[in-house]
Amino acid sequence: MRIETITLNKKRNVTLTAMLQDVGGEFRGVTKRPAVFVIPGGGYMFCSDREADPVALPYLKAGYDAFILRYSVKEDSVWPNPLNDYDQAMDYIKERADEWNVMTDKIAVIGFSAGGHLAGAAATMSKNRPAAAILGYAVLREDTTHEISDGPSIVDAVDEKTCPCFLFATRTDNVVPIQNTLDMMSALNRHNTSFECHIYDFGPHGFSTGDTSIQAKSTLISERAKNWVEDSIGWLRDVMGDFDENGLTKPVCKAHITDDGEQWLSLDCTLRRIFGNPEAVKVLADTIERMRKEIKPFSPEMTFDDMMLGVLGKMKMRDLLAERGIDIDKFDEMDEKLSKIPNI
């Protein structure tokens, strides 16, 4: 592994530390690596060291490259300086991506507290939106944001382009109220954006990885709180793919609960969307005929089409077929056909 530290803005003391691992050779099948982009907290007054290197290390072990941004703080943190720091850093990574063997479409941001606010801004309003975001006891609500910054509300900025998010916090955090995480979860849910959330029963603000080398053993914190690290690594493998002999596998968890907002149809569109598109009904005619035979309406007054467009309409086509064991071996073939049909 090699480590480089780049000064992005000398006047504001903004730096990017790149922690880069080898590819090829003994790392068979690995020609490029996904990465995590770590943004420490510190109330926009400083960048916490214990939310920097100690956070990067477990992800390095899991095969990710790691970047640590030390962004504008104190009087230099006037918005949008921190967000501009992030975008400048991401532009720099993209410029050197071939040299560094980094998958620029597989970079996840990890932010804590005020750094979580910046990571949330990256996920919702930056020029270089990440593939995923991990937000730890993050400042996300307008009222909490304005206690430390003139920056925007992250909760209010969530939209259909927001990347999948992993949220974690403790219920007894007395610095950043738990309502920040709860409201973010609700906002993601409203936009059908994939997320995972862990709220531990008790623990202090700023516990980082929760290791005793960082958090004193006498600190009252749930033993399970440190599980967020391994859980988030598993989650990243779900939403960005895992290593195999060909690089990274296809993600098993899509960015949105359904593909109804995508440009083209797929089996991950809802039944309402599929059955409301005559071309989709035509290309899936054989499968739909099987469905008519095997899935009976819930009442004599209800037709099969009424059921697909109504009571079951919000269910994904893939999920219903899998539940009933219908044409599972044809999923790839059906997806290929649907991918050529505009989602209108």
Rank of each mutant, 00 (worst) to 15 (best):
V55F: 01
L57P: 11
L57K: 07
L57W: 12
P58M: 03
Y59F: 09
L60K: 02
L60Q: 14
K61C: 08
K61T: 15
A62Q: 02
A62I: 00
A62P: 01
G63E: 10
D65I: 05
A66S: 15
F67K: 03
F67H: 02
F67R: 06
L69Q: 02
L69G: 04
R70E: 06
R70C: 13
Y71K: 00
S72L: 05
V73R: 08
K74N: 14
E75F: 15
E75I: 11
S77Y: 11
S77R: 12
V78I: 13
P82E: 09
P82V: 10
L83R: 00
L83Q: 01
N84K: 15
Y86A: 03
Y86E: 11
D87F: 02
Q88V: 15
M90K: 08
D91I: 01
D91N: 05
Y92S: 01
K94C: 02
E95T: 08
R96W: 03
D98C: 10
E99L: 12
N101Q: 09
V102Q: 12
M103Y: 09
T104V: 04
D105A: 02
D105F: 09
K106R: 15
I107M: 04
A108T: 02
V109I: 05
V109H: 00
V109F: 05
G111Q: 04
G111S: 03
F112Y: 04
F112M: 00
A114D: 13
G116K: 06
G116P: 07
A119F: 01
A119M: 02
A119P: 00
A119I: 01
A119T: 01
G120F: 09
A122E: 02
A122L: 03
A122P: 03
A123H: 04
T124Y: 03
M125V: 14
K127I: 12
K127C: 15
K127E: 10
N128A: 03
N128F: 04
P130R: 05
A131T: 10
A132V: 03
A133T: 12
A133S: 12
I134L: 06
L135E: 09
G136V: 15
Y137R: 07
V139L: 03
L140Q: 13
R141N: 15
R141C: 11
E142V: 07
E142W: 06
T145L: 07
E147L: 15
I148T: 14
D150W: 11
P152H: 07
P152G: 09
P152Q: 11
S153Q: 06
I154G: 01
A157K: 05
V158T: 14
V158S: 13
D159N: 14
D159A: 13
E160P: 11
E160C: 09
K161F: 13
T162V: 08
T162M: 03
C163D: 11
C163M: 08
C163I: 11
P164Q: 14
